[in-house]
Design a protein around this nucleic acid. Structure first.
Lengths: 328, 328
DNA sequence: CTATTTATGCTCACATTGAGCATAAAGGAG
DNA sequence: CTCCTTTATGCTCAATGTGAGCATAAATAG
C-alpha cells in the first residue's frame, strides 16, 4: 500500500530568505505581485534543468531579482498538505525547500522586489534600544489572556511556562535565537495576521482576544502562506550561526572597523553588546587581521580597519564572534 | 522560462537514520533487500495520503519495520540530479528528505531490517579506547598521499589544512561533531567504497592511491546511494544536539544511573568523559532528579537511580549535557 | 580651548572548567 | 574475615574565561 506515490503530481518549490545588512538594520528581500500578498521570493525546481537544488535557487533568484547570492544554506523543508489553507483544490502537492542566503547589499533594480527592514515582520525581536514597549505591554497582556483561555489548569501552566521562557519573563533570560518559537507562540495565540487568515480559510473562527480592539492591527507585517514562519526560521538560524561560524563577514565590506562589525552583529542578534569585551573576543579569536589603514569617518577618534582572516577556518574548528553579553 | 516544472515527474523520498543505543554502542537500523546493497530505511511520500512529511515517515517505518519512532527531527533535503550515478535513465527526479529518529531499543522482528553498530560505518569516529590505530596510520598516510596529488601547491596546502582540522592532526583538537566533513574528505580522497563505486558508474576512473593494496578493503561498511552521507549528517547533528538539548533521554530507560547516562553520551559522541565533572555538570544543570532507589548491579558500590527532570525544559532555554572534556 | 564622541588598553571580581585526591560501599579471592 | 578490585560520590585547586567598568587617546564641533 502507498508504494505508488504518483497519483498526485508533486511540485518542489525553492524558497529563500535573502538577508543583507545596511544602516544597522537587517534587510529582507521580498516580492509584491499586484493584488497578491507580499512574499519571500520563490520559484519552482526544474526537475530536468537544475542539477542541484542550490543551483536552481541561485538561478531563478538571479533571473527574477538580479541578485547574485553569496552564502547559501539550506534551512528546512516544509511539506504539510494544506500549507496554503485557502487553496483547498486537489491540485498538485507542494513541497518547499527553504534557504537562508546572505548578500552584501547591492543596488537592485528588478521590479517586484524590495528590501524591507526585517524588524517590520518581527517588531518584538529588536531589543537594541531596550525591550520594546510592545513586548511587555500589549504582547504580554494578550498572551496572559491566551494562557487563561487554556482548556485545563495544566495546559494553562504549560502556556505560562512557554511564554516566560521564550519572551524572557519571570526570571528567564531573553534568548535571541528563539525567533521561531516566539513566532509560533504568537501564531497559536492568534496575535499575528496569518493566524486569523488561516483560521478563516479553514472555516473556523479566529481565536478572539479582547485585548486586541479589532482583528486588524496585529503584530508585525504579515507575509503570504507560511513565509513569515520561514523567515523566523532563517533569522533564528542566522543568529545562532554567527556565534560559531564566521558568516557575518558575508555581510560586511572587505575592510571594516571593529565597531562596524559589532554593529552588524548587533543588528542581526537584536541585542546590544559590550564594546570592549567584543573587541577582546574577536581579537583573541583570531577572526580578523589589521590592515594598517585607518577609518576617519567615525565621529570620534579614527579607528583601524580590519579584514577577515580566512586562515582562521583552517586553524579553529568553530570560529564565531560569540556574544559577549548584552548590556541593557 | 522554467516556470513549467512538470516535464519530469518528481518523487519525494523520506529517509531515516534511526538510532538506538544498547550495550554502550550506538545502533543504526538498516535494511537489506536481497542482492541490493544495504541501505537506510526509506519510503516514498504519498502526496495524497500523508498529511505531513513527518507523519508519512512515521507511518511507513511502522509498517515496514514495526518500529514506533520516538523523537524525530528533520535533517536535510538531498536533491542532486544523479544522486544515484548508476541510474542514468531519464526517469523521475528523486528528492530525499532525510530525518534523524531516536528510539529506545526494542525487539524488532520485521524481516529485512537489522540493528547495526554505527561505528561499522564510521570506524574512525569511535575514540573511546583512544584514537583508533586505523586513524593515524592507514588513513593518515593515504590522505597525505592524496594531498600530494593536488593539482597546485595552494590546493595541496588546502587539503593539508582540511585534513588537520578535521582529523585533529598538527595541533588541532578532535571535534566530534564534524562527522560529515570527515566523511566527505574521505570520499573525495577515494577512501570509501562509495567513491569508487560512483566514479565507476560515471565512467571515470577511481582515484588511485598506492597505499591501498586493492580497491576492495576501504574504510568502513558502505551503504547504498548517498546513505552513508545521510548517516554522517545524522550522527554529526546528534552529537551536536546532545550538548544543548536533552535528547539523550530519548535513548535511556525511565530511570538510570548517572554512569549509564554518561556511557550513552560517550557512545554517541565517541569520546571518553571525566566522570566527576560529568556528574557535576548534569547535577548543576538540573537535568535529572533523584528517585531514592538504588541500582545494585553496578559491579561496585550501588549507584542511585535518577530520572529526567522534564521541568528543566521550562526553566532553561538550552539544557544539554555538555561534554566536560575528554580524558584520554 | 572645551565638550563630546568614538577608540583602545587594562584591571578585577566572579564563574566555569579540567584534573585529580580522597573516601564510601559493594563483591570476590584467599 | 581481610584484602583487593570496582564503582560511586564528595571535594579541592589551578587555569581559564566572562561580565563590568575605569582610564586614556585622538578625532570633531562649538
Amino acid at each position: 500500500m502507498g508504494m505508488d506515490a504518483s497519483d498526485t503530481s508533486i511540485v518542489v518549490g525553492l524558497n529563500a530568505a535573502i538577508v543583507a545588512v545596511s544602516d544597522e538594520m537587517p534587510l529582507i528581500l521580498t516580492t509584491q505581485a499586484q493584488d497578491k500578498q507580499e512574499a519571500l521570493p520563490f520559484g519552482p525546481l526544474d526537475p530536468q534543468g537544475d542539477r542541484t537544488l542550490e543551483l536552481g535557487l541561485r538561478g531563478w533568484v538571479r533571473e527574477q531579482t538580479g541578485v547574485e547570492l553569496g552564502y547559501v544554506e539550506q534551512l528546512y523543508t516544509f511539506g504539510d498538505r494544506n500549507r496554503d489553507p485557502s487553496q483547498t483544490t486537489g491540485g498538485s502537492r507542494v513541497i518547499s525547500v527553504a534557504y537562508l542566503a546572505l548578500v552584501r547589499q547591492s543596488k537592485l533594480q528588478a521590479p517586484q522586489a524590495q528590501w524591507r527592514n526585517c524588524y517590520e515582520f518581527f517588531p518584538w525581536e529588536d531589543l537594541r534600544e531596550g525591550r520594546p514597549a510592545l513586548l511587555d505591554e500589549t504582547t504580554r497582556s494578550c498572551l496572559e489572556e491566551w494562557s487563561r483561555q487554556a482548556p485545563s489548569p495544566s495546559k494553562r501552566q504549560q502556556r505560562r511556562d512557554r511564554m516566560a521562557i521564550n519572551f524572557g519573563w519571570r526570571g528567564s533570560a531573553w534568548d535571541s535565537d528563539r525567533v521561531l518559537d516566539r513566532y509560533e507562540l504568537l501564531y497559536e495565540a492568534g496575535l499575528v495576521q496569518e493566524a486569523v487568515r488561516d483560521a478563516k480559510a479553514r472555516g473556523r473562527k479566529a481565536p478572539s482576544l479582547s485585548c486586541i480592539p479589532s482583528g486588524e492591527a496585529l503584530l508585525g507585517r504579515p507575509l503570504a502562506l507560511d513565509h513569515r514562519r520561514i523567515l523566523a526560521t532563517a533569522l533564528g538560524r542566522l543568529r545562532g550561526k554567527i556565534k560559531y561560524r564566521p558568516v557575518v563577514f558575508e555581510l560586511l565590506p572587505d575592510t571594516f572597523t571593529l565597531f562596524q562589525l559589532q554593529r552588524v552583529v548587533e543588528a542581526l542578534s537584536g541585542v546590544r553588546l559590550h564594546k570592549q569585551n567584543f573587541r577582546r573576543l574577536v581579537a583573541k579569536g583570531g577572526l580578523v587581521e589589521r590592515t594598517g589603514q585607518m577609518e576617519q569617518q567615525t565621529g570620534g577618534r579614527p579607528a583601524e580597519l580590519f579584514r577577515f582572516r580566512r586562515e582562521v577556518l583552517r586553524e579553529r574548528p568553530a570560529p564565531g564572534v560569540g556574544l559577549p553579553g548584552l548590556r541593557v
